[in-house]
Amino acid sequence: MNSAMDFLLWTKGPMFDIAMVIFAVGLLARLVEIFMLGRATNYAEPRATEWLPGFRTVLTRSVPDPGTFQRAPFNVLVGWIWHIGFLVALLLFVPHVELVKGVLGISWPALPNPVVDVFTAVTLFSLVATLVHRLTHPVKRHISTVEDYLVWTVVFLVVLTGYLAYHRLVNPYPLALGMHILCAEIFLIILPFTKLTHIFTTFIARWYNGAAFGRKGVQS
């Protein structure tokens, strides 16, 4: 019987397991490889400590300096907006909190649905804006690769299907929810093998840069 409910149960059952396993194997393989390879040993005598400058850079690189903002206000502003919206929807929506609780046994407070709804709607608009910008800005367009468009599509679909499911705009609902879960699973599967890995490596990389600066005694 090929029904919407079967589809939903497939996405919640075997497909979720597959996605989670690929995600965990892929991500850990990449992270461990990065850590183990490390950088070439620096034999020079350190001029200052590494840890504090490392963390300072994590912070300073997250908040754009005025120059960057003036050069690319759209990137900074819309980038921030949709990242925050995405994280709010991902981490603070009640069903997502329940999902994490169900799988990992840990939970945290969630936001009321209408608040998450607003964040999601804003995220959707911002994502569309980023695509338009990518397609119209000559430099951005030139440096965009297939992977960029693939990742944008998957992220957008995850948010879009989530929005459709929450507002029950697709009938029957099990189909809508199943599509959202499937998109999220595709997101999980491609995460370790695309630029989406930055979710886990950005702050590590920023810290490393800062630590290297600190070691050299350069302002971080």
Partner: peptide, 21 residues
């Protein structure tokens, strides 16, 4: 709740993570 996967659990995740490592 409706959003909780049917069979996935922390054990699977940890095992897969260990394999990945």
């Amino acid at each position: 709740p409706v959003s909780v996967p049917l069979t996935a659990n922390a054990g699977t995740l940890l095992t897969a993570g260990a394999v990945g490592a």
